[in-house]
Design a protein around this nucleic acid. Structure first.
Lengths: 206, 206
DNA sequence: CTCCATACTAAGCGGTTGCTTAGGTCTAAG
DNA sequence: CTTAGACCTAAGCAACCGCTTAGTATGGAG
């Protein structure tokens, strides 16, 4: 089973909810710049130039550079949560495998957004961080529930549910750090590889 | 088997090779600041203040802020490589377990240094980056050799050696991102957990 | 045509950045 | 005491930062 392009059909519209179009272009430009250079090394002039506008145009749709980051982070977190929980499988083994496959390959395919999501949390204001942390808590809970369900069904052999959850999430998240589009593996292949490795980690009955 | 404090005896002197003492204090202050705020968000005034000196003192021992980062990154990479390859076990299963235990717990115990090592590569000059990338190549090769040795000895069941190597390294490295000293697990416990999970991933004969 | 709201830019302000310069302070040898 | 040299600081420079202000172009309603 491989990741189909259809699995990401909804995600091609990651930013589709952002209007007006100029605000969306600015967000996408900011996400690209933050991903490559990092939030603090990116200037508002960089973002504006990438969006093909003047430096002042940033402040028509956003109050500050940090608010730009917050919107990227919030939409990115919400999208990755829906990818993780959007799997249709009901059998615990197949369900965890499908969720890991989707979540890991999302971090590869959308590594630009994923890097901002995972590595720029400390640049958010306390209020914005709190909102994003709540989404992260729900992501962790979703994985923990899938692991617990498999243990309860007798399909997994896991001595430490919290520890296994931590490792599964960590493994998938770190894809955003090392993935390169020109690299050896496609996002779909990474998803398949990681689904297999995770089933081994949780001792899934084969 | 737990990680003993003796395992890190040599590492308590991570910066011992840096002289004179004032240059060492400056390096340690920079590592702490880069780790918390990130390289670009850290000012040379921050570093100097943390070291208890004036802003100009930075430039007595280092040519630039980037050179400070380079020294931290180089020493950090070299130390983590020696932690990984310094294990004494010869049996493939015990050897990989010991290496993962040491490598993962190092990323927790020395997460301050490890964060600079893993997340500030893009701030290095091309020349300095090349030197560090060579050390990273040797780290990856060390893990790959351990996995290959186990496969060759018939002790591991790994369909994709490169993929498993990638996942093992990725898992350990990401500890630096999520670890918190006030958290639920000690570095030694993380090492033990990860050694077990990695042996499951490579299908080690039990 | 006028009127007005929206979307944008040119110019620039106050503050901060990495880094430099000129000079002061200490220790130890002569 | 003088001198040399290592080590450090006070002050500040040019460049750049996030963000603001004042004003322009555009297009639809009356």
């Amino acid at each position: 089973m491989t990741t189909t392009s259809g699995e990401f059909a909804l995600l091609d519209e990651t930013w589709s909810s952002v209007t007006p179009p100029a605000a969306r272009r600015m967000l996408i430009a900011a996400a690209a710049a933050f991903s490559v250079r990092g939030y603090h090394a990116t200037t508002t002039r960089d973002i504006a130039a990438q969006a093909g506008m003047s430096p002042a145009a940033v402040y028509i749709h956003y109050r500050s550079k940090e608010e730009l980051l917050f919107h990227i982070s919030r939409i990115g977190h919400a999208t990755s949560l829906s990818v993780l929980t959007g799997v249709s499988e009901v059998d615990p083994v197949a369900r965890l495998a499908a969720a890991v496959r989707a979540f890991a390959s999302w971090h590869a395919e959308y590594h630009t957004t994923a890097r901002v999501v995972q590595y720029e949390l400390s640049a958010l204001t306390p209020e914005h961080l709190a909102e994003v942390v709540e989404l992260r808590r729900r992501i962790e809970a979703a994985v923990r529930d899938m692991v617990s369900d498999g243990v309860r069904a007798g399909a997994f052999d896991v001595p430490d549910v919290r520890g296994a959850t931590l490792a599964v999430l960590s493994l998938c998240i770190d894809v955003a750090r090392w993935y390169q589009p020109a690299g050896r593996r496609t996002p779909a292949e990474i998803g398949d590889l990681y689904a297999d490795l995770v089933l081994r980690m949780v001792g899934a009955t084969t």
